[in-house]
Amino acid sequence: MATDLAPPPVKAARVDRRKPSRGRALWRYRWLYLLLIPGLAYFLVFKYVPMRGLQIAFQDFVPFLGYNGSQWVGFKHFEDLFTGPDFGRLMYNTLVLALLNIVFVFPAPIIVALMLNELRINILKRSVQSLIYIPHFLSWTIVASLTYILFSVDYGVLAGWIHEIVGGQKIDYVAQPEWFRPIIILQTLWKTTGWTTIIYLAALAGVNHELYEAARMDGAGRWRQLWHVTLPAIRPTIVVMAILMSGNLLDMSFEQIWLMTNNLNRATADVFDTFTYYVGINQGAFSYATAVGLFKGVAGVLLIFGSNWLAKRLGQRGLF
């Protein structure tokens, strides 16, 4: 490190922090850089060294032969992916689920956090808070079997009630392709909402009380306080969460979807992640799965940077 520079007084850090020369900056912010090092080392060692593995998307990777021994096949796996007869359907199904996630799953924890924020019975608030994150701990297998308990055409509790009220033909919710997406979204809502709510609750904990006082002075009611104080306070968190979510938009929970797929609903159920699994069963998925991962990654990068740009255009801070 550059040590030949005379150390400027610490207090001077405040003045003229805009354009210091490189060496001077390094010294001036030495403590900040020092704090950065362990984390940076982590990312290099455990995230970037393994990324050499991405090359197998262009190989016919055989684990035993390793990177150097496996055969190079160029863009074969990408061709298989894009020109395969299933691509259009997989893309469509994945995008529809992604869209439903944005519309229903993303806002849910924000709404719940705001509702909890308005709750003034403390004991109730605490109990509900500690209850709603329980589903995060139950595996998809259990979620799936609970879904059957509710919706099975044979013994489904909820399906039975609905049938009694509505009448008509019994609907096989878990088998029919048109019910697949609603059920998946319901499952995701149930399992993840409470968990993500915690992040927004933490953000709400940081809201300055005086802002509420001031709003009240101005005669703002609850609705307006929510709109003009609470929401703006957690807006940065919402923006960050939205941008981050966009990066993984095309990732679906494989196990969840796999468990709810059957011979009748495959037309709507198959997404990239489940199809990759079937390719894996048949031919060993390393290279193909990596190619799919790269494709999703490129899409994810575009989405992240795109939404970050959009956020900034809209006057938000964005990620960086």
Partner: peptide, 15 residues
């Protein structure tokens, strides 16, 4: 660099 790793990962075997 960090955001890149949100989207890309080397996979099980390389790790």
């Amino acid at each position: 660099l960090v955001i890149f790793t949100v989207v890309f990962s080397g996979g099980i075997i390389p790790t």
